[in-house]
Design a protein around this nucleic acid. Structure first.
Lengths: 200, 200
DNA sequence: TTCGTTACTGAATGGTGATTCATTTTCTAT
DNA sequence: ATAGAAAATGAATCACCATTCAGTAACGAA
């Protein structure tokens, strides 16, 4: 219950990521997580309310960490296009570097029950807002179209990154994810058309 | 076991869609599905192997149906851009018209069990291929950039639609999904930039 | 009507695994 | 050292629910 931030807490959380990634949330027994973490089954309940709390905590810790990192990183960049490129690159790099986390994030969120999904959605919000802000900045600076629907653009960007990572996970991480940053960025910026004008 | 296509089979499948949508796969008891379908628990096992088979069957029947519909629809259109627009519109319309199916498709695809995932992935493949073919056609006809990575473009399109539908589902279907077809299409075609040139 | 076949029923079974808690170990302060 | 508190243990519990199957009903051919 008491969420003491200490070695054991960390160990259990890391073990949970590994085991959730390997077996999926529903097939991951708490006893397996305990074994992986090198603690007794009951110990987990000293640090987490229940199995669900374990999943939510992964998001709280890791997404929180990532968003902070991204915010810090973007401070050193001024124009919106560069910021967009950084977001794409960071997103892909972070998950490529943490494959087990990627599996959990991509695969396990959606099959949890509505309450858990809601909580995770709220944790995600900070990141989505970050992307939207960049879109807005780009509109104001004239880098992006002034009639751009920023929310739609954000969904497009997030949806694309999400699908890229899911594919990569399902293909057992056989290719470089980060390498896609540039082409993806270009596609957002320029669209798929050859010339200039796509009609309505 | 014997998959007789008849009234009861259909009733159980429809009930499963409703119950999976309402509770999520793991919280949906087989007995609830039976009740919703107006049959005894055991009857389900005369038509489906097990609970998993129920989920896979939903995909087999419904995705199969959708892809056929899309293929038929696209025959009447010649240029790639128009085809792309049709795919977007059909995708959004189909799921908006079948909200419970949308919930199941969006939320339960990423089943943790590898076997189920594999089977669903294969069923999805026909659709993904369809999108990629349109991209290729567009490249050949000169409508799309000749250096376009068609697989990447496909992932972008599918990822975006996927995220749009998921948002819509999580927001309890409060707004029109189909209405997004046009702006989404425009964004793919033209990108988000105001002018012409996004640099590298 | 009768008999055989096919379809259906739903209570009982059995495996599973999250969670609890009485007990033991480790830690801390005096 | 030692007592008392805090942390950790892990075997036992027990709720849960997919699946089975012995029994019943419906059907249809003769």
């Amino acid at each position: 219950m008491a969420k003491r931030i200490n070695k054991k807490y960390e160990a259990i959380l890391e073990a949970a990521i590994q085991i959730f990634a390997k077996y999926g949330y529903h097939r991951a027994q708490v006893s397996k997580i305990a074994k992986e973490a090198g603690v007794a089954d009951g110990t987990i309940y000293l640090y987490f309310e229940n199995k669900e709390d374990l999943l939510i905590s992964i998001f709280r810790e890791k997404i929180g960490h990532f968003v902070q990192k991204a915010q810090r990183n973007l401070k050193s960049v001024s124009d919106a296009k560069q910021k967009l490129f950084h977001i794409i690159a960071l997103h892909l790099r972070y998950l490529e570097t943490n494959p087990a986390l990627a599996v959990v994030v991509q695969m396990e969120v959606r099959q949890s029950d509505p309450q858990v999904r809601k909580e995770i959605g709220e944790l995600m919000q900070a990141y989505l807002t970050l992307i939207e802000h960049v879109m807005e900045q780009g509109k104001l600076s004239g880098e992006f179209r002034e009639n751009l629907d920023t929310r739609l653009a954000r969904k497009m960007i997030f949806g694309t990154l999400d699908d890229l990572v899911t594919s990569w996970v399902l293909h057992q991480q056989k290719y470089s994810l980060q390498a896609l940053s540039k082409p993806v960025y270009q596609m957002f910026v320029n669209g798929i058309t050859s010339e200039k004008g796509g009609e309505a």
